[in-house]
């Protein structure tokens, strides 16, 4: 990392960070009975926004309709609050480490435009994937992995598999 300045705090040792993360996850299980998530909030915010613009289309959808049924609020969900916390926690950690700065992080040979485009495209792909797989790296791999859910382990290995499969095509972009 060439952009590391002298007053930037180093990252935690990965194993110690993993134990800390594991304890957060364990705490979530012990207190709430469920694990963590990352993409559920994006889904709900997006559906909420779409519902404002085109209420009929959303209500008619077999997948989204039940989430906007009367008597409930689309944003009234544990995952939405949890992701608000993720944002706040990320901001606290980044700022206290001296890393909070408006930047566009990219590989050494990637152009600004290609980075912007690929960030968005990758996001869209993951949005579809997370709905299809009923969760993302947080909700499936991490949470389901820790609870020893069989499908979540399949999901986790599939994520690494998918990444390694396509990574060689993008070598010039990241290396």
């Amino acid at each position: 990392m060439s952009d590391k300045t002298h007053n930037e705090a180093p990252f935690w040792n990965p194993y110690l960070a993993g134990i800390f993360l594991g304890l957060v996850l364990l705490g979530s299980f012990v207190v709430m009975g469920n694990g963590l998530g990352g993409s559920g909030a994006a889904n709900r915010v997006a559906i909420g926004a779409a519902h404002l613009v085109a209420p009929q289309a959303v209500e008619n959808s077999a997948y989204m309709g039940p989430m906007v049924a009367p008597g409930q609020h689309i944003l009234d969900d544990w995952l939405v609050w949890e992701v608000l916390g993720v944002f706040l926690g990320g901001a606290l950690a980044a700022y206290s480490a001296g890393r909070m700065k408006l930047v566009l992080l990219r590989g050494p040979r990637a152009t600004v435009l290609s980075r912007l485009a690929l960030a968005l495209i990758g996001g869209v792909i993951m949005g579809v994937a997370a709905r299809l797989g009923r969760g993302c790296t947080s909700g499936q791999a991490l949470t389901g992995g820790a609870a020893l859910a069989a499908g979540s382990w399949v999901f986790m290995f599939a994520v690494f598999g998918g990444g390694y499969l396509v990574a060689p095509l993008l070598r010039r972009y990241w290396k």
Binding site: L36, G37, G38, S39, A42, V83, V86, F87, L88, G89, G90, A91, A93, A94, Y95, R99, M100, K101, L102, V103, L104, L105, L116, L118, A119, L120, I121, G122, G123, V124, I125, M126, G127, V128, A129, A130, R131, L132, G133, R134, C136, T137, S138, Q140, A141, V154, F155, M156, F157, A158, V159, F160, G161, G162, G163, L165, V166, A167, L170, W174
Partner: peptide, 28 residues
């Protein structure tokens, strides 16, 4: 879904949860 998410992961450089953290620390 896992395979597809892995593909999106390497294209975007983030998974959904880490994208949120990156956004909070200022990465466009």
């Amino acid at each position: 879904g896992g395979l597809l998410l892995g593909v999106g992961f390497i294209i975007a450089g983030y998974c959904p949860g880490t994208a949120c953290v990156a956004a909070a620390s200022g990465d466009i």
